[in-house]
């Protein structure tokens, strides 16, 4: 599995995580998918809807946020491909909580943000039996 993303969009994801630091930031990945190929074209950064005390290690996008994401994807002629979120001062690997709440099919980009600086992003997909996340390779496309 490979997730293509252009470098500017990946930078925007990193910037969103840095702006949210020390809290978690999150939003939707918008793009196009074909069998065997998935490309992120843009993002929709959103406000973390969790309560103040939990935003350092939890994020929530509400049902209203989801509808906003679907409408924005429709407006751009794209699909919702997944979610991006940051892990402040923690590794960019999915937690058990991430897995419990994960949707099938979606790509989950997780960015580690250390001391306010985005370090690295990895992308994950839930396995068919929901038992684990499987990493998908991020292929960064240089913006021309």
């Amino acid at each position: 599995m490979t997730l293509e993303i252009d470098d500017q969009t990946l930078k925007a994801i990193h910037a969103h995580g840095e702006e949210a630091y020390p809290e978690e930031g999150a939003g939707f990945l918008l793009g196009k998918s074909d069998p065997g190929r998935r490309r992120v074209v843009s993002i929709l950064g959103l406000t973390n809807a969790r309560e103040d005390a939990a935003r350092h290690n939890r994020y929530l996008l509400t049902a209203a946020d989801y509808l906003k994401g679907e409408l924005e994807a429709d407006r751009q002629g794209l699909e919702l491909l997944g979610i991006f979120h940051s892990h402040p001062d923690h590794p960019n690997r999915p937690s058990e909580f991430d897995r419990e709440w994960a949707m099938p099919w979606f790509s989950y980009i997780i960015t580690s943000v250390h001391h306010g600086q985005a370090v690295e992003s990895l992308s994950w997909r839930l396995s068919d039996d929901r038992a684990a996340f499987v990493e998908e390779i991020i292929q960064v496309i240089s913006h021309q």
Binding site: R50, Y66, I83, H87, H90, S95, F97, Y108
Partner: peptide, 11 residues
Amino acid sequence: LIPSIAGGCDA
């Protein structure tokens, strides 16, 4: 059927 989306790191 509208999902809400959540997650977060172990801390």
